[in-house]
Simulated assay, not measured.
Amino acid sequence: MSPTYPARVLSLLLVLLTSLSVHAQYFIVNQPGASSTWKNGAAYPVSWTKGLLDGIDTFDIELTRLSQDGLIYVAMNVQSTYKTLNVLLNDVPPADDYFLLCLNSTHGITYAVSSRFTVAAANSTASQPGPDSAAPTVTVSGAPNPLVGFARTFGPEANGVRGTVGLGWEGQAGGVLAVLGAMLVGAVVTIW
């Protein structure tokens, strides 16, 4: 006969364990702004501000339009240590309803959406902030096409391994508490 556990005890343990893994996410796209106009043939900076201990090590950047289906895949696995990424547009259809998405495309988690901005033809007179010379540049070409992958995929930083040294004492304490909680649950289940 297997032991039965009161629903309140199991619910309390579930809430306790999930609350240990929750952390605030703070991610804002600074550029492009609402009045930005990007023209084809020029590079423009994409800049963001993100939380220090939000747990986001890498993210993906996609370009989308409000009135059209489809995405233009800009960059995958952008390291959170970057503050800016330059985007060079080639033959992207001009329109005034573009947005940049910062997300985890594998898990479908959106971290931030930029303000609505305009993409103009190459012969327009649009001139916005110039590219950041210290940031990498990604070249994006053409209209949305589901068969075309990301324009650039960044490699993992430090072999993709993240230790507990950079987590700070809050992250380390949360990890230790989660392990202790799992051990306690295991002990209760074994004894019961």
Rank of each mutant, 00 (worst) to 15 (best):
F59C: 09
V161M: 12
D60K: 02
P6T: 08
S21N: 07
G186T: 07
A187R: 06
D132Q: 02
A134W: 00
T139V: 15
L16T: 09
D132L: 04
S19H: 06
L63Y: 10
Y26K: 01
D91H: 07
T118P: 02
P93Y: 08
S133Y: 05
N90T: 07
G41L: 09
T37A: 15
G130Q: 10
A122L: 05
G175V: 06
Y82G: 01
A187H: 02
V46S: 05
M76G: 06
A7K: 06
S2I: 01
D91C: 02
A187M: 07
S36T: 13
W169K: 00
K83G: 15
V119E: 08
M76A: 12
N104S: 14
T106F: 13
L12G: 04
G171N: 12
A7W: 06
V138I: 09
G186F: 07
A134C: 00
L66I: 03
S124T: 12
E170S: 08
A43H: 03
T58H: 11
G55S: 03
Y98A: 09
S47M: 09
L71G: 00
D57A: 15
E170Y: 05
M183Y: 04
L88G: 00
T4I: 04
M76N: 14
S141V: 15
L184P: 00
M183I: 14
L10F: 08
V15K: 09
W192I: 00
T190P: 00
A34G: 05
T190G: 06
S21I: 12
H23R: 14
G181L: 14
L20S: 03
G55L: 10
L17N: 06
T106S: 15
K50W: 02
N90P: 00
Q31T: 07
L63M: 15
S36C: 15
V74M: 06
P3D: 09
L85W: 03
S11I: 13
Y73C: 03
G130Y: 01
S80N: 12
M1E: 10
S35C: 04
V165H: 02
L85A: 04
L101Y: 11
D91M: 04
A34M: 05
A121C: 01
F27L: 08
H23L: 14
F99Y: 15
L66H: 10
W192M: 08
L103I: 08
V29N: 12
F99P: 00
N104A: 12
Y44G: 02
H107G: 13
I109M: 05
D91V: 01
P3V: 12
V46H: 04
D69N: 11
H23V: 14
S80C: 03
F117Q: 05
N90L: 14
T110M: 11
T18L: 12
K50C: 09
S35V: 11
G51M: 02
Y82F: 15
N90S: 10
T64E: 12
T58E: 08
P6N: 13
Q172R: 07
N77T: 01
V113P: 03
L63N: 05
V22R: 11
L63K: 01
D54C: 01
G168W: 05
L103T: 11
V92D: 01
